[in-house]
Structures are given as structure tokens and as C-alpha cells.
Design a protein around this nucleic acid. Sequence first.
DNA 1: GACTCGTCGGCAAGCCCTTTCCCATTGCGG
DNA 2: CCGCAATGGGAAAGGGCTTGCCGACGAGTC
Lengths: 365, 365
Amino acid sequence: MTAARESPAGRRATPDEVAGAPAVRRSGPVLLSEVAAHAGVSLATASRVLSGSRSVGEPHRGRVLAAAQELRYTPNAQAQAVARGASNVVGLIIHDVLDPYFSSIAGGVMRQVEERELVVFLASTHSDVDRELEFVQTMRSHRVRALIICGSRTTDRAHNERLAHELEGYAAAGGQAAVISQDRLGTHAVVPQNRTGARALARELCRLGHRRFAVLAGPRGLLTSRDRLTGFREGLAAEGIDVADLQVLHGEFTREGGESLATRLIAQGPLPTCVFAVNDVMALGALAGFRAAGVRVPDDVSLAGFDDIAPLRDVVPSLTSVHLPLEEMGARAAQLALDTEPQTTSQAVKVHAEVVLRDSTRRLA
Amino acid sequence: MTAARESPAGRRATPDEVAGAPAVRRSGPVLLSEVAAHAGVSLATASRVLSGSRSVGEPHRGRVLAAAQELRYTPNAQAQAVARGASNVVGLIIHDVLDPYFSSIAGGVMRQVEERELVVFLASTHSDVDRELEFVQTMRSHRVRALIICGSRTTDRAHNERLAHELEGYAAAGGQAAVISQDRLGTHAVVPQNRTGARALARELCRLGHRRFAVLAGPRGLLTSRDRLTGFREGLAAEGIDVADLQVLHGEFTREGGESLATRLIAQGPLPTCVFAVNDVMALGALAGFRAAGVRVPDDVSLAGFDDIAPLRDVVPSLTSVHLPLEEMGARAAQLALDTEPQTTSQAVKVHAEVVLRDSTRRLA
DNA sequence: GACTCGTCGGCAAGCCCTTTCCCATTGCGG
DNA sequence: CCGCAATGGGAAAGGGCTTGCCGACGAGTC
């Protein structure tokens, strides 16, 4: 820190050029004032030329541009943000870049952000709610102009309130936020039709002749998991299946979670004819678990997931899932946060979920 | 812009509280000066308490903390960065978040960044070299304290020079950079042993009895592709195979690229016994292409990739590949950029690549 | 030729913080 | 009981940039 402080001082003391050593750069970035001096104009003029905020007469204009180029001037975006009172960065909070669900969403967000020539701050919570809260703070402190959170709503009231509170603080400070997969937070929201999708899936599976199901669900506290489970139950009930003895196993929302649940399911005795994993990452884990135990999909058991994540394309058997336009969801959230006037009442976008039957679910004789 | 400007002015004019409406927050963030005023101390004292830069006596200390909490003060990170002359953000430039190769590396970087309580700026170039250059500029203008670039070195001399030039500018301005998969840029570098890895792969494949190969390579200009191809050739030669009639097809470094190359390969006539796709994403595409054409892997043709990306775990047949510790590479790059003293001579870390034989490559009778 | 515009440069006052001085306390040994 | 260091508080000078305002100057009008 002291070093950082001393460097400008030392810099100024250094002669511009050491004789004989050509183009010896002093340390530290080039300042606008240096460009102005080099071009022989005032700071204001240099600033105006470079930011194009007002027209500047040709002789000066050219000189400033030349000087900037020669000195390799790069404006200090932080200082600009402070002076202008507005930054051009967007915050994005997800659980984990490594999870294809989140990276797809991130991809959608990125594309929108790039189109607008903004930059994104990426933070990953690794499913830790406290870090989520913390990151909202961080983003707020960086004065991001828009904040996109792709988390998972929990049933933890206290946490939800704190999050809503943080977001309200962020909004009060002038920021725009959009949340994916959550709602009732007073922000824009992009929410997939988890329940409807799961219901439709249940119907399709029943139409294939399945009657005995098991569900590999996520943590009890996660609303996404709960909604899908509820929808699935509803769908089964609508097909006249007794939901009371539906096997439901709860585990982590990860590949390992799915794998261990599959193992547990196998250990519990006779398999149902069809297993629904509430998300694809778990479904992939389950697939691995089944395979390891010698249980064949779909011959011994049918398997369906939810989300239709990208890696599904290369899995054999191809996995039945409920398709969610993940990239689009990210893009939509970004649009909501970036294109809506602040102070507008927040919008909630419902995202359609569509069942895609593939080879992992077979028709029963 | 004008609006942004006027808001502080408007803010100040607004009465603190509209009678009757409790806790009506004025728009815009809370300032340190307001906290100080609220606590009845000077700006300096408030700053010292909140940043802990110097000890402050208890009565004041408590009051400041209370005021900050009550007002929901969030420091302006941008202003702090300007004032301190050092930011706590790290830049990360990759090709595409959606590509598992890059997201794994990003994951490794993120973890290191999080440990140090920093934030990351993420930019994706979508393989556009000009955008890469542009982003280095952007990152530089944001004064990121460290910059990690995970690109692909091309044979385009002009571009390499421009990149090196940019990076030199960045370094001159006091930043630390680390580059993954590239070198000779005057920065720290993390470079996988592409050539050695491919050579070892060739040897293993030969040991399985294969003699006739095809290579699905990336764009001609990409050094990564070229190195792997070279290594593969060397490996074959070492096993006494005539490299002259090795079929090499060039395409995009993507799934679609791999798929269309596989199709082309099939169209070209009799298949070799083994195909090497220079990266896994292409290999997955090729697998799909083969499957679509009714060519069975590994019965009709063996297939091997490179990188050992995460989604490979769920592919059937499991894909032979050359394992690269992707997350670790990201982490290592982050460490180099973050933990090395500036002005130190740049280090180059070689990353070991290890052949992993799986089911997609079969032993010939 | 006096007048009004409109254009363009520069001064200086911001933006929100941090940090350097400097002064007023206080506590302590001599 | 005095001088000393150590401590803690504040005013103010930055950090790098933007922009409101004023004044200068040239071009157009009557």
C-alpha cells in the first residue's frame, strides 16, 4: 500500500527518458493530465476529446488523439465511474461455473452484456446462502449498474428476508436487479414453470405405462426441488396414481448427490419402473450410479431429469428431460435488468418448460 | 448521463424525510460523509473506523459503526480504488463460458480469487482475436490487479505481437498477467504439454494395435491444435508408422466442427481404425457424427480426444483422452498472477498431460 | 460596423474516498 | 510538577476524471 502510494511520487521524479535507453516506461499508468500536457491542451479538452462528450476543434482534437496513442493512454474506468456517478459493469451471481446449468445461464447473460459493451463481475456462491448475501453487498459496493442473481429460493424465511432486504438496499441505491428462479424479492424475476413442467412430465411418463415411481429430490429446503416434486405429484395424481407411496429421496443438488441417491434407491429394495431426478445434474449422477450397480437404463428402470442441460446431448441413453431455455433465461434476466427504467414496477417472466421424451424412458408393455 | 448527474443534486434538495412516510430513502447510495455526520465525527474518523486503517477510540468507533449499520452504508469500491490506487479485482478472459474446457479453467481461477476475497471481471471473446485485444484494454482500463488470459496462441504473427504489446503495456502500468496455453508473451504462463501428451497418446494407440489413423484437427492457425498434431505425428513415427499418409482434417474447435469433420471423414472413403480429435469438444462432436452415420465406436472405429473435460464422465462409450488438470491450471495461473511480486521475471509452468485409455479405443485383434 | 449567435478552450468545482499532516489530549517517568 | 512520547481527532490535500460555467473568438445578420 505504501508502495502504491509512493509510486506516483517516484514516477514524477524520474526523468522522462533515460538517455540511451529508448522508451523506458516509468511505472504506473499514464494519466490524462500527461496526455493533455503532451498535446499542449488543458485537461478538460483532453477529456472531451477522449470521451467525445463535446466537440473539440480539429487542431486540438488531432493532437490529443496522437498524444493518447503515443503515450498508450488508457482511461481509468474507476475514476470515470466515480466522476460520472455511473458504472458500466453488471454483476452476476451464480452457484458454480462448473455446473452446466449455471454456465448456460451465464452464457446468456454474457451475450447480452457484451452486446451493450459492458463488463461483468462474476461471483460464485457454491450454494452458500451467506456468501450470496455477501456478494450482493460486494456488487453493491462496486456500484454495478445491474445485478443478476441466479440462485435458488429456499424455504428459509430469515434468509429470504435478509436477501430481499439487501436487494431493496441495492435498489434504493439506484441499482437494477433481476433474479432467476426466484421471485417475491421485489425485483425483476425470470421463473421457469417448474411445477407445470414436472406435471407434464408425470403425465407423459404415465402415458408410457409407468405406475411406480421414485423421485430423487434435492435438499428439502430448496424451492426449485420442492416445486418440481409437487408438480410431479400433481401430475401423477391427475393420472390416477396413488401418490401416498411415492418414494422420495432427498440429497444434494449435484452429480454426487444423484449418484448416491441412486445407490440408496437400489439398496432399498425393488426398483420402481421409473425414476425422476429433479434436475439433470442429479439425473446424470443417478445414471452413473445405476450403471455402476449394473442396473440398465431404460431396460431395468426408466430415468428422467429436468433442465435439459447441454451435456445431455452426448449421453447414452439420451436422457428424457424437461427442457428449459437456459441461455434465454439468462439473456432475459439481463434484458430485464438492463433495459428497464429504474423505478419501474418489477416484472416477472414465466419461462415455459417443455417435456422432451428421449431414450432413457421406455414404454412399458 | 445528465440524469446521473442531476440525481445527487436532486437528492440533496429533497427533504430528509417526507412527513408521514417513514423511512423513505432518498435515491442514490449513502455517502461516507452522511455516516460521519450521523455519528457526529469527522469524515476522516469515519473512514478510519470503517477501513480499519488506524485505531479509533471506543466512543467514536461504536458510534460510527452504528451509524453505518443504521444507514446501510456501503463503501464505494470504485472511489476506494481510485483513492488507494489499487483495486481488488482480477480480470479473466476466456473464449466461452459454455465450453466445458474454459468453464473448468474458470472454476479453478474463481476458487483462488474467492480465497483472497477478490472479485473477477469475466470476459468472453468467442474466439475473436480482436475482442481479445479489446478486452485486455478494457481490463487495463479497469485497473485489474491481475489478468488471466486463457486463449489460444495463433500463428498469426501480427496478432501475437499486438497482444504481447498490449500485455507489456498492462505490465508497465503495474499489472500482473498470467496466460494459459500460450507463452512467449512476456507474462507468466501455464502451458500444458500438448506435444508430449499427444505423442504418448499415439504410442498407446499403437500399442493397441492401430496402424491407420485420422486426425480431426482444429483451425490451422491455432498452435494448440498444431502442437497436438505434431506430437501425434511424432508418436506415430516413433512407432514406425509412415506419417506421410496420415489423414488430417481441419475444422472448427467446436462440437459442430468435430461433427462435420467426422461426416466428411466417413464420406472420404474407408475409415482408419482410429481417429484422434485434437480436443474433447471436437471428439464429442465426432462421436455424435459417427453415431448419426451408423458408425459404431469403438467397434467400427476407435476415437480419442484431448483435455479430459468434465462431461466426458457421462459419455458412452467412455472416451479415451489425454487428461489435463484444467481446474488446477486455472488455479495455478491465478496464483502466478496474484502471488508473484510484480517485476519478477515471469515464470512458465509446464502442466503434465496424461493419457487415459477408456472404452472408445479398442484393442485390435 | 455593431450586434447576436454559436463554437470551442480552459478554469475550477465537483465525484467519493483515503491519507498526510498537524494539533490537542492523555499518561507516564523523572 | 514538568517534559516526553504516545495516542486520537480533524482539516485539507490529494487520487484521476467529468462537466458547468465563463470568456474568447469567428461567422453571420441588419
